[in-house]
Nucleic acid binder design. Structure first.
Lengths: 239, 239
DNA sequence: TCTTGAATTTAGCCTCACCTAATCTTATAT
DNA sequence: ATATAAGATTAGGTGAGGCTAAATTCAAGA
């Protein structure tokens, strides 16, 4: 008789956990450049390094990463496409949760993480439609296109800004809920302009002033979590 | 060190496939009454009867079903609650897909089936909010309350209606896409009133007339897929 | 009552995606 | 140049949830 084993391979993505690996490798490549180590990926996914070694080998089989023992993994073109597909889903879902379902920043990440494995491409594109095809999510992160291209990112952490510089908030790191809250409460959100009053090298505190002449002193962790752009540069497609 | 094994047991439902079994048992109980056989559940889930036997034993361990060898399984109170929780999710998600995302009837079921395992209770309730706390989905099926109660269902297939009876469409079976389309195209949807002109016993054809005096002849399969109510009876909470 | 076929269960396997413990490699510091 | 520690890999499990094939049980008709 046969119970229709694993024949859904077509329309379904690589098994859901494969996507988690690809996304982790992609994120690490973006922030640290170069190959992703088993240790870092393991940390990001809260699993053991040993499991990552195994999976890297399998991902290589599948043609999704280039992997050299003891050297870490980098995404192949196919792997990158797949990762970006997941990132697109994730960011669109986050946008929906925040804008239509009244989630706040803390709750969003976890829910999106689960949902992105369950939704189809069709769902994703209809959601994009409903949201008006946004090109950035509410954190300010760019949303990859359905074709797998992603706006180049020329932002840098506020901690690296120069005194006197006029900058625009482009995004805030969404790892730490408390920071998100802090920023959210003060309406320090993507899109706002700030003037850098002082960057104190001794303790890493950055003093900024917003357009209503409100002044904020941000400690180093906060200053590293807020990303800014110094001028409007709009285009560029890159990996 | 420890990699945070399975400690999410709290907020997560019983493993996703457990939910599939419970829903299958529940649906079979609703339509056929009595205990669900391994064979029927196996057919519904497209797995082997042997697997169902195993799982029934485990579900019993977990206190979700009452199971007697060779006798099938029935839901315990906890099992029923859990099943209804899934059904609620499913029907709310279907409603959302149809009303906000422009899905048509065919596509909805499959997508909802996957999503219902990924969403949290929090998501479900916010979605209910967004949808205006509907008590029926677009097929006309009642949506269980968050507390696990479900409106009693006094509808019957059109094929069992009597000549001359005035009835209201309560729901249409969502198994067959072609039928859904047929009904959808003619706007024969839940809520509409019909008058039964004739029930032909010889071939099972039912002739009905809608409020615009439009007349339809529905063959037996269609007449068995359309459920109707003969009067407005509104309340009742039952399993 | 007996036979027989359908439904069910049992027994024994398999794959996935994890784990731990033990064994390499590699890079770094003396 | 070498010792050592950090990081990576291998070897050998585990549990969930499937499967097939071979019993077993039940129910129904002769």
């Amino acid at each position: 008789m046969g119970y229709e084993m694993n024949d859904l391979a077509e329309s379904r993505s690589p098994s859901s956990s494969v996507g988690d690996y690809l996304k982790a490798v992609w994120e690490l490549a973006v922030t640290s450049g170069g190959a992703a180590s088993t240790k870092d990926v393991a940390a990001r996914l809260s699993i053991s390094p040993a499991s990552v070694s195994n999976m890297f080998a399998r991902l290589q089989e599948m043609g999704l990463v280039r992997y050299e023992r003891y050297r870490g993994a980098t995404l192949t073109e196919r792997g990158r496409k797949e990762a970006l597909r997941l990132v697109r889903r994730h960011r669109l879902i986050e946008t929906f949760l925040l804008e239509h379902l009244g989630y706040d920043w803390q709750e969003v990440h976890e829910e999106a993480e689960r949902l992105e494995h369950a939704v189809s491409d069709g769902f994703t594109e209809r959601l994009a439609e409903l949201l008006g095809h946004p090109d950035h999510d509410p954190h300010g992160d760019p949303i990859p296109s359905a074709e797998g291209t992603l706006e180049a990112d020329d932002s840098f952490p506020l901690s690296q800004a120069a005194t006197g510089q006029r900058v625009r908030i482009s995004k805030v790191r969404d790892e730490d809920a408390a920071m998100l809250d802090y920023f959210g409460d003060r309406n320090l959100v993507p899109g706002r302009w700030l003037t850098v009053r002082e960057v104190r090298t001794v303790d890493g505190v950055v003093i900024v002033e917003d357009e209503e002449a409100e002044v904020y002193a941000l400690g180093e962790p906060l200053a590293r979590s807020m990303f800014v752009r110094s001028e409007t540069s709009d285009l560029g497609e890159g990996n």
